[in-house]
């Protein structure tokens, strides 16, 4: 008990955060999602009523659909574009640092800033649409911010602009970690570079891809600020996302139980992604008994 006492005292904030915040507060939220709480939490249990209401809500359905669109597009494009950028940067080029700095700087900006910039660029009276119309293409239309079907894609474009640099940086680090001999061997065998990338390098970079995937996925579930800044969820509710649904019901509409039910669904989704990953990552490592080189 008193061994390592100082260490235990020093770790108190960590222990408290882990237990009371991450475990305790999560359980609290799940618990109260089964109540009829409105603006304040009450212990009046209504079973799965909040969840039934949630899945009947058209706004929630739209939110789910939007986060799915955003998620699939972000994953596909940020992984492919990020990898491609990293490969091109890895070609022993000049000005590598300059290019890398340019690709990564949006990642230093907040989602609010990102959203507001793209709101201005996509502005239907003064933005890209007007520029191209002025060039002589009178019929050109790009008012995706005011179009119910396409507003979510504006969020995708802005999100990709902000986040692809991170993927590029991670991939570049992964590429640099590949043993030089692999490349020599491939060259001796006369395998073209693109095939080496596709069939040798990418499989070797599996851990980097998995980690990047998890990072992007965690970001997708959390997407909130970007929507608030870029579209405000509009037009109408056409670009709502789950995180915003939760916030609006908890603080805007005084329907706490509903917000908590929605947040519990978000938590469940994350756990479904996270647990297999954690199992893979840590389960494997335990089997290998930590190689000395790591």
């Amino acid at each position: 008990m008193f061994r390592n006492l100082h260490s235990k005292i020093a770790a108190l904030p960590m222990i408290a955060t882990a237990l009371f915040i991450f475990v305790g507060c999560s359980l609290w939220s799940v618990f109260y999602s089964f109540t009829s709480s409105r603006s304040l939490p009450v212990e009046k249990f209504v079973g799965f009523d909040q969840y039934i209401r949630l899945f009947k809500s058209s706004r929630w359905a739209i939110s789910i659909e939007n986060v799915a669109i955003y998620g699939v597009c972000s994953l596909v494009f940020s992984l492919s574009v990020g990898f491609l950028l990293a490969v091109f940067l890895d070609q022993k080029i000049r000005f590598e640092n300059t290019f890398r700095t340019i690709f990564l700087y949006p990642f230093a900006l907040s989602f609010i800033v990102t959203g507001l910039v793209w709101q201005w660029i996509l502005n239907q009276n003064f933005g890209i649409q007007k520029v191209i119309q002025d060039l002589g293409f009178e019929g050109f239309e790009l008012n995706i911010l005011s179009n119910r079907d396409y507003a979510i894609y504006a969020i995708v474009v802005a999100g990709l602009w902000q986040g692809t640099g991170l993927v590029m940086a991670l991939m570049l680090a992964g590429l640099r970690g590949i043993d030089e001999d692999i490349w020599k061997a491939a060259r001796v065998d006369g395998i073209p570079a693109w095939r080496t990338y596709l069939f040798i390098v990418i499989p070797m970079m599996r851990p980097v891809f998995v980690t990047t995937l998890v990072l992007i996925a965690a970001g997708i579930v959390k997407v909130y600020d970007l929507v608030v800044a870029l579209t405000g969820g509009g037009p109408g509710v056409s670009s709502e996302v789950p995180a915003k649904y939760v916030y609006d019901y908890m603080f805007g509409r005084g329907s706490l139980g509903q917000g908590l039910a929605a947040s519990t669904v978000m938590l469940t989704t994350v756990l479904i992604i996270l647990i297999p990953w954690g199992y893979m990552e840590f389960g494997e490592r335990r089997e290998k008994k930590k190689p000395a080189s790591e």
Binding site: A11, A18, F22, C25
Partner: peptide, 20 residues
């Protein structure tokens, strides 16, 4: 505790904001 803490990093903030 450390593992819990790391998993905590992935919990959507929306789950924790009201208890906080």
């Amino acid at each position: 505790f450390f593992t819990i803490l790391l998993f905590g990093a992935f919990i959507p903030y929306q789950v924790l904001i009201y208890p906080l």
